[in-house]
C-alpha cells in the first residue's frame, strides 16, 4: 500500500481551489438540506403562517420563515380524521410481508445459484436481473389484468405479491453475491462433522446475517416508498402512506400543512433505517455492482 501522506505545497491555485470547494460544499449542503428543513417546519405551521413569504427580492425579511407558532394540529388531524394509522399499518404489512417472502425464498435460491454450476445459469441470472429492472408501469399493465381477474386488486396480499416482483429478483441477485463470498469448505467441514446439507446451509446463514438484515431493510424501503403499484393495485382496500398522501390533494384546495406532515411521517422512519444500513446502501442501490 502506497502512503497516503502526499506532501502538498501551498500554491495560489491550490488556495483558490480550496476556497471554491468549501463554497461549493456549503451550497450543496444548503441545496440538500433546505427542502427537508422547509418540509419539517411547514408541517408545524398553520395555514396562515405557511403562506407567509417576504416580498420578491426582500432578502432582509427571510426571518418570516421562523415567525410562527408551532402547532401539531396537522399530525393530529392526519391520524384522527384521515385514518393515517390504518395506512401506516397497510404500508408496514405490505412492505414487511414482501421483504419476508423475498428474503426467505431469495436466500435459498441465491445459495443454490451460488453453489450450482449448470448450463444456462447465466441466462437464468439475466432473466432474474432483468425482471428487477423492468419499468414498473410496463410490468403493471399485464399484472393489473391478472390481479383483476383473480380478485387481488385492492388487497394486501395482492400488494405484497406486486412488491415481490421487484424485491425477489433483487434479493436473489444481491444475496448470491454474499454466498459467493462464503467458502464452500465451511459447509464441507460441517458435513464432515455430521451435518446434513440443510443443516450446513443453516450453519452459514449467520455468516451472511448482517447483509441479510441490511437487505431486508432495503426491501422494506423499496416497498414502503412505492407509489405506482400501490395506487393501481392497492387502491381501495390496501391504501398505503404514499397513496394516502397523494389523496390529500383535493380539487378545491390542497391541504399543504397536512401533506407536509404526511411527508414527514412517511420519510422519517425510512431515513433512520437508511442510516442503520449505511454500510450496505451503495451496494444495495447499485445491485451489488459497487461496494464501498
Amino acid at each position: 500500500m502506497a502512503s497516503r501522506e502526499i506532501v502538498r505545497y501551498r500554491s495560489p491555485l491550490r488556495s483558490v481551489l480550496q476556497g471554491l470547494s468549501i463554497l461549493f460544499l456549503i451550497f450543496f449542503f444548503v441545496w440538500t438540506v433546505l427542502p427537508l428543513f422547509i418540509m419539517v417546519v411547514s408541517s408545524f405551521k398553520d395555514l396562515l403562517d405557511a403562506f407567509q413569504l417576504p416580498e420578491p427580492g426582500d432578502w432582509g425579511d427571510l426571518g418570516v420563515m421562523f415567525d410562527f407558532k408551532p402547532t401539531g394540529t396537522h399530525y393530529v388531524e392526519l391520524f384522527t380524521e384521515k385514518h393515517f394509522g390504518t395506512y401506516l399499518r397497510n404500508s408496514l404489512i405490505a412492505s414487511l410481508g414482501s421483504a419476508a417472502v423475498s428474503v426467505s425464498l431469495g436466500s435459498m435460491a441465491a445459495y443454490a445459484l451460488s453453489r450450482a454450476e449448470f448450463r444456462g445459469k447465466r441466462d437464468l441470472l439475466f432473466w432474474i436481473i432483468s425482471t428487477r429492472m423492468a419499468p414498473v408501469v410496463a410490468v403493471m399493465v399485464p399484472l393489473y389484468v391478472i390481479f383483476r381477474s383473480s380478485g387481488l386488486v385492492g388487497t394486501l396480499p395482492g400488494l405484497i405479491l406486486a412488491y415481490t416482483t421487484f424485491n425477489l429478483p433483487f434479493a436473489i441477485w444481491i444475496l448470491k453475491g454474499f454466498f459467493d463470498n462464503v467458502p464452500y469448505a465451511i459447509e464441507e467441514a460441517a458435513q464432515c462433522d455430521g451435518c446434513t446439507r440443510w443443516q450446513a446451509f443453516r450453519l452459514i446463514i449467520p455468516l451472511v446475517a448482517p447483509g441479510l438484515g441490511a437487505f431486508i431493510v432495503l426491501c422494506v424501503l423499496f416497498g414502503w416508498n412505492d407509489f405506482l403499484f400501490a395506487t393501481i393495485i392497492g387502491s381501495g382496500g390496501a391504501k398505503t402512506l404514499p397513496v394516502a398522501t397523494a389523496e390529500l390533494v383535493q380539487p378545491v384546495k390542497i391541504q399543504w400543512g397536512m401533506i407536509m406532515a404526511a411527508g414527514v411521517v412517511t420519510t422519517v422512519p425510512m431515513m433512520f433505517l437508511g442510516l442503520l444500513i449505511r454500510r450496505y446502501l451503495v451496494a444495495g442501490l447499485t445491485m451489488g455492482a459497487v461496494r464501498e
Binding site: M39, N225, F227, T245, T267, L281
Partner: peptide, 22 residues
Amino acid sequence: LVTIFLMPMMMAPVVAGFLYMF
C-alpha cells in the same frame, strides 16, 4: 457530510414530488 447528503435518497419519490411542488 455523506450521511447528511444521502437523506434525500431515502424519501419516497411521491413525497419529494409534493415537497418540490410546494
